[in-house]
Nucleic acid binder design. Sequence first.
DNA 1: TAGTGTGAATGGATTCACAGCC
DNA 2: GGCTGTGAATCCATTCACACTA
Lengths: 241, 241
Amino acid sequence: MNSPGNPSRENSRNGKQRRRRAAAGWTNPRDIPDPVARRLSLYLRQLEAMRSEGKTISSKQLGDKLNLTDAQVRKDLAYFGQFGNPGIGYVIDELVQRLRRILGTDRVWNVLLVGMGNLGAALAAYRGFEKKGFRLVAVFDADPNKTGRPVTVLDGVRVQPLSELSDTVNRLDVQLAIVAVPAEAGQQAADALIHAGIKGLLNFAPISLVTPPHVAVSSVDMAVQLEQLSFRVGCMLEGGG
Amino acid sequence: MNSPGNPSRENSRNGKQRRRRAAAGWTNPRDIPDPVARRLSLYLRQLEAMRSEGKTISSKQLGDKLNLTDAQVRKDLAYFGQFGNPGIGYVIDELVQRLRRILGTDRVWNVLLVGMGNLGAALAAYRGFEKKGFRLVAVFDADPNKTGRPVTVLDGVRVQPLSELSDTVNRLDVQLAIVAVPAEAGQQAADALIHAGIKGLLNFAPISLVTPPHVAVSSVDMAVQLEQLSFRVGCMLEGGG
DNA sequence: TAGTGTGAATGGATTCACAGCC
DNA sequence: GGCTGTGAATCCATTCACACTA
């Protein structure tokens, strides 16, 4: 998140109201800082992997696993009210449930995929989404040679042409879309998706999408990720680490 | 970058020295803030896509494309000396060259891949890496059923067993590795890679890797990315945007 | 005029430190 | 003793504003 082309540029000058609302039992997640939201996902992932290892966990234990301070963990969680036990820590199962609720993975999201190339096919076959409550319900491609065929890894799903986008989004109540098309086709695909009513985009095309503020965008550019590595490794080599 | 399990935790109290060194023509990239490094990649990507559109570009023009302020763009670039022209802007070709130099993509990096499942296969077939100077030179998998076979999309590369890791890393001078194995195998794979001398890991396994400080790690968890979307979209729906 | 480079000011995020609780 | 929740303090990143330059 917080890659360019993302919407979180609303100037909310309401920091003061936050605590009051939290005390009332719920906080409007709109004013949760981005870094906090990202860490929530990491907490959840870590906790889910640790469920067998005990019933409770302290902020220190959790933080150590993720290279974060205990204070950071507590502050993050405190955005959503107080549900830790002094002297004991947090009850893992309870915390998992709460985080799911907060992050929205306590419900099922219908997701569609645009672009059935190598990456698209791999993503369609990836089972990791389902565990988190994301159900891939439709697949699209601009290439007429690819449309019509059934998607072998997905029961009852066939590759559709983009002309059927709006219809399908409405019929299946799809909220999220994965964009796995080449750079040149990325913006156009995004425009079509947004026009069809999609509320969130996971973008794998190596471009900065331009989107209206009511659409959430999260971008993954694998070449950029490798580039960041090459930068950091380069540092160490010549900086003489 | 800056996902847990990453090394940038060195407490450098040397902010003062930065400018002096920059004036001398070069800055030790070790003390470049992470957000800056990430944006450098975005600048480069944007500029490469715009080379045809003109000879120079201003910080404002570039910033607008990426939803950043002009001041931000200038500050970021100023970390590496001054190469803009007052009244004119930056010469695109020159800036591209400089950014490549800085990010380390003006040279070729040899990369290996561990895990030849769906995602691994898609990554092996992805041509986007080569353009940036990353050459996939070896592929590994723990499953004996997969080893030995040639990788069809890569000339002269066959899937090797992990026992050959160290040998290959040394022989081919590999610096970076992509980890595309299941969560359970992630840490073990990372350990083996680091032991073999790999300097940077691009991790797709949905876990937080534990790594020594001299190894750079960049993580991509697609389920987490979707989760962030579901969080942001959830906000808008119930926050009544 | 149009733009860079950069100190100073602002705004956010992280960490500290401690009161309060089990 | 161990741990949470949180104001205060610190640290870092971003933006402002302007001297300076082509």
